[in-house]
Design a protein around this nucleic acid. Structure first.
Length: 605
DNA sequence: GAAGACCTAC
């Protein structure tokens, strides 16, 4: 089964020259080992290999393992594998090193295959091998194999190994089994910063940010350990996913206190968090503080700018990174296309889509084409968008995103025919079915086709399709206020809210604002019927602005499936002028910053 | 004796 490998080809002249150099210290075996441990240069490694071969010490498993690890460290997996195959008696360390090498090189399947071959060669895995194999399952999101290895870990009596348990928590988390991860975490006898971080990150990565923050609180109160870079970036990430600006700022303080602000990953999570929480200026400031920013912080900043409709800034950042010789990734291009889409820069977007392969060898995938559909749709070129959507083979989540994008775009421009096609695609693919029905129904409603609205509603009932009630929420101090469509105002200040609302409406009317006849108008796409289309959600506004004394930059979050209409956009602009207060509304993951009567995020208005 | 865990942009 094992192949005969080759020692790397070396120039004999080079070798004779190198052999005279003192840095080899080959007089002593310990020096040789030290040289192997410190070696970060392939040429030196090859020379050491040659020397070991000549001296006959390659047959010593211990020495060979050091050389093996040296090749793995230098990411020369083929040479490591050749060496492994040449070894007369590879032991568990040799096996583990090569398995780990395959994972590092992005070949987790080969790693698992090799792990599976160990029993045939009568080498039982130890705790190091198990944690390496479990990591391969994490990378592959292979829960089944992960569980099998977990069972073997238990049988081998290794359940109390700290590193193994952290690896298991991570594996369950990466396989989307958050509760499985928590079970392992809870069963651990002792924990360290890494195990706490793994569990916190698991919550954050699985859209359970509240639990991530709760666990961080427990960590802070139960241990004397200080959070490290990894933990802080996980916390900031959780704040970002929740849109919790206040918590994000608190995490930022912890970052500064612990002097972790120079860490690029931490800085990137902060850029992302502020971008998602409505503070573009903070994002930008942190971005500029990153020395020698790599592709990820650039991409994060490009996305933040794109969200605000600052397409020009996003494209300037993109040009800047190219000038600095930083190679863009597929995600960077997604950000660029997103920016073009949200700023109406269609020609620019098409140009970048064309060049991403030609200039950087990145093939556009369904996400890029979905951006293109969005871009064309928003620019009113809905027929082109439709043609693009039809030409793409996209399944599962990617397909849902594509057709959902086309559906929203066709609703925006009132093209019922295309909305019907996109909606049907979604419904038939069993993805986002309820959302598709509701958006489709609203498209009919906006076109005045109430018969179709009723038909669709009947079809939903027949199919047992139920749309979860959407809600909005406002964070204020330690409380989150949640509102559902049509809520009766429940808070103590209810009457004051209504009074403020009336006053606001009065003053808006005095300034010539004409709403939809029902006060501050929102189109709530959750509701299907004619009467409910013009739902009144002004309670949220009033509470946000008037009574709970929000800070100057308040954030109202409106969940994905509630979309602002043009009227309420105008209303927001007017309110910002009347109240002389800036505020940010988050709508379908886009931010609109209203200030002094205008909105800095143009978006599709 | 050599080898293992946690964080960032969609």
């Amino acid at each position: 089964m094992r192949r005969r490998g080759l020692v790397p080809n070396l120039n004999p002249n080079f070798l004779s020259r190198q052999n005279n150099l003192s840095f080899f210290h080959t007089n002593g075996h310990s020096h040789l080992i030290r040289n192997l441990q410190n070696c970060n240069n392939f040429i030196v490694a090859s020379s050491l290999h040659s020397h070991i071969l000549k001296s006959g010490s390659l047959s010593h498993t211990f020495t060979a393992n050091h050389l093996l690890n040296c090749y793995v460290r230098l990411r020369k997996i083929d040479l490591a594998r050749n060496l492994f195959d040449e070894m007369s008696e590879p032991n568990v360390v040799s096996w583990t090193a090569v398995i780990a090498g395959y994972i590092d090189l992005g070949q987790p399947r080969t790693a698992l295959r090799m792990f599976g071959e160990m029993p045939e060669c009568s080498v039982p895995p130890n705790e190091f091998t198990f944690s390496t194999a479990i990591k391969a399952c994490s990378v592959l999101s292979n829960l089944r194999t992960g569980k099998e290895i977990h069972a073997r870990v238990e049988v081998c009596g290794l359940r109390n190994n700290l590193v193994l348990c952290s690896t298991l928590v991570d594996m369950y988390g990466k396989c989307d089994d958050v509760d499985g991860a928590r079970r392992v975490f809870d069963a651990m006898r002792c924990r360290n910063v890494v195990s706490w971080t793994t569990m916190i990150a698991t919550y954050g990565q699985n859209a359970r940010g509240h639990e991530a923050l709760q666990l961080f609180r427990e960590f802070s109160s139960l241990t004397r350990d200080r959070p490290n870079d990894f933990m802080l970036s996980s916390i900031v990430n959780a704040c970002a996913s929740l849109g919790k600006l206040a918590a994000g700022k608190a995490a930022h303080c912890a970052v500064i206190r612990g002097s972790h602000d120079a860490n690029e990953v931490v800085a990137t999570t902060l850029i992302d968090m502020y971008g998602k929480c409505g503070c573009l200026d903070y994002s930008y400031k942190i971005f500029r503080q990153v020395s020698c920013a790599s592709v990820v912080p650039y991409t994060s900043m490009i996305f933040s700018a794109a969200k605000y409709g600052l397409g020009k800034l996003a494209l300037e950042l993109f040009d800047e990174m190219l000038e600095r010789g930083i190679k863009p990734s597929d995600v960077t291009y997604l950000g660029v296309l997103h920016a073009c889409s949200h700023s109406g820069l269609v020609d620019e977007g098409l140009k970048h889509l064309k060049f991403m392969y030609a200039k950087h060898g990145i093939l556009p995938d369904t996400k890029h084409y979905t951006c293109l559909v969005d871009m064309l749709g928003r620019a009113g070129r809905i027929d082109e968008a439709y043609r693009v959507a039809k030409s793409i083979r996209a399944e599962g989540d990617a397909g849902a995103l594509l057709w959902g994008t086309l559906l929203s775009a066709s609703r925006l421009v009132g093209r019922v025919d295309i909305a019907v096609e996109a909606g049907r695609q979604l419904i038939e693919s069993n993805q986002q079915v309820a959302g598709a029905y509701v958006t489709l129904s609203n498209t009919y409603a906006l076109a005045g086709d109430w018969d179709s609205v009723r038909d669709l509603k009947r079809e939903m009932k027949r199919g047992g399709v139920h749309k979860e009630t959407a809600c909005s929420w406002i964070d204020f101090k330690d409380w989150t206020y949640v509102f559902f469509a049509g809520d009766v105002l429940w808070c103590e200040q209810g009457s004051e809210v209504v009074n403020l609302l009336r006053e606001l409406e009065k003053r808006m009317k005095e300034r010539g604002y004409v709403g939809g006849g029902k006060g501050l108008v929102f189109v709530d796409v959750d509701e299907e019927t004619e009467e409910e289309i013009l739902g009144l959600h002004s309670e949220r506004l009033a509470l946000a602005f008037g009574l709970i004394n929000l800070p100057k930059s308040a954030t109202i979050r409106i969940m994905k499936n509630i979309r602002m209409c043009r009227d309420c956009h105008e209303a927001f602009k007017l309110i910002s002028e009347i109240l002389e207060r800036d505020f940010i509304v988050r709508d379908n993951n886009r931010f609109h910053h209203f200030t002094n009567g205008y909105c800095i995020c143009g978006d599709f208005w």
